[in-house]
């Protein structure tokens, strides 16, 4: 998708694999079975976490990159 010109934020947990296979825009998440969630947080905090992940993804697709780049959610803004 990136090659075809669509900037794509990859939200995933195994970021080392994503980097190794060359995904350009990577948003680290917390678990393989729940890329946009974290069941340990409780409903309200989990929704806030998901929102931050999506916001980070939007920042990623609006940022120029030249190689696999991580866009982690900043801890303070969780």
């Amino acid at each position: 998708m990136e090659r075809a010109g669509i900037p794509t934020a990859l939200l995933c947990n195994l970021t080392s694999i994503a980097e190794r296979v060359g995904a350009p825009r990577i948003v680290p998440t917390r678990g393989i079975p729940y890329p946009t969630g974290d069941p340990s947080l409780g409903a309200e905090k989990e929704r806030a976490w998901r929102r931050r992940l999506v916001e980070r993804g939007l920042e990623a697709v609006a940022t120029a990159v030249h190689k696999p780049t991580l866009f982690p959610v900043d801890r303070e803004t969780e």
Binding site: P7, T8, A9, L10
Partner: peptide
């Protein structure tokens, strides 16, 4: 006309 995508991966 999609300009960007969010891809969730497990």
């Amino acid at each position: 006309g999609v300009q960007a995508a969010l891809l969730t991966a497990t």
